[in-house]
Design a protein around this nucleic acid. Structure first.
Lengths: 205, 205
DNA sequence: ACCTGAACACCGTTCAAGT
DNA sequence: ACCTGAACACCGTTCAAGT
């Protein structure tokens, strides 16, 4: 008696892979384990994915969608006219996501043959839309200086992602005594950057 | 007739692994290939390393030493009293290193059990010493504002490393039309940050 | 279309054995 | 100490076969 998955096997595999990734890390993630936990034979995944890399790309894509959701929720908890507070809240949500799901972030920023995965590329770009909108709003309402908003968005993203990436790899590094939470470190660093892009000098203080 | 490696097999393995990493990527790197290219049996590496992860940690450590050398050389090509130019030069050297050796950077920032590799941790910290010295010099000579120099160093490192990491994974991303070289993008972004940490507002212009 | 079992080449790691 | 060959469990991928 053969059990079929009624067309949702693809999504089941992505979810199982995401859960296995969280518990065992990217090294311990094998196609055969994923298939086994999903209750299918070890080569059933090839019905839905070209190879293992394609499964990881789909997991990465889902990661960007989740990241975008959490960042948007953090922004929406702020006063709608305080652009600086919103940018800080978005940064804090980003690093929190990263620290809570380090292996997922690693898969999201592995080097794929990006031409093979256009949906992954667009998911990564979409996850930045909200940040870009904030930068443009800040320029309109007089919070941020004029300048290329794409560059300014990338400046914030780079700083926040770099902090997350470094913290995952070298949590115990003594370069910064980590008495502060990762969110508080992000706040300090991004405030330095926003001081450089703000109309009012040292708005923080 | 058995050929011995006279005690340098450990370093030979690190060099062979680094070369294989550059050509085949981290996925295609196997202990057995490394041993084969080094001309020894597939389990000779276990004489010098506990397991595969230990080999990768040694490759990562060598990467930080090389990175520190290239960043220092870039700084030394600047006018010795222009702290801002030196910080920009260090940033440009960092992203150039990353783009030239994407797989090496990936291994340098994988999540190791850092307690097992104290030499890797100290190599990563040492590679930042020169940047930290620049920040302190900038505070002394009136280029940079007062503030925790560890935080300010981490702010620069995070931005530069984040840009490198994002660029490796999503080179063709349309969020920023990449007419500029990676070094020029780094210069633009870091200048935004330095504006926020500079005594003179918009020193760039 | 969707799933399976058998098979292939490859992998990390262990171990008894050799010098 | 240093290296080897045999062995084990595991892996990604392919393929002929089943419904």
């Amino acid at each position: 008696v053969v059990k079929y998955h009624h067309g949702d096997l693809r999504n089941v595999l992505i979810q199982v892979a995401t859960k296995l990734l969280a518990t065992e890390g990217v090294q311990g993630l094998s196609l055969r384990k994923i298939a086994g936990q999903a209750g299918v034979s070890h080569n059933a995944p090839y019905m839905h994915f070209a190879d293992k890399e394609a499964v990881l790309a789909a997991v990465a894509e889902a990661g960007f969608q989740l990241l975008a959701t959490e960042v948007a929720a953090a922004i929406d908890r702020c006063h709608p006219n305080d652009t600086r507070q919103q940018l800080i809240a978005a940064s804090r949500a980003y690093v929190r996501f990263a620290i809570d799901r380090p292996h997922h972030l690693q898969v999201m920023f592995s080097a794929y043959d990006i031409e093979r995965y256009p949906d992954l590329l667009s998911a990564s770009e979409t996850s930045l839309n909200r940040l870009f909108d904030l930068v443009e709003a800040g320029q309109t309402n007089g919070t941020l200086i004029a300048g290329n908003p794409h560059e300014m968005t990338k400046a914030i993203w780079s700083m926040v992602h770099g902090l997350a990436s470094i913290s995952i790899a070298y949590q115990t590094s003594s370069i910064l005594p980590e008495r502060d939470s990762i969110e508080d470190v992000a706040t300090i660093l991004v405030n330095h950057l926003l001081d450089g892009m703000a109309i009012d000098r040292h708005q923080t203080q």
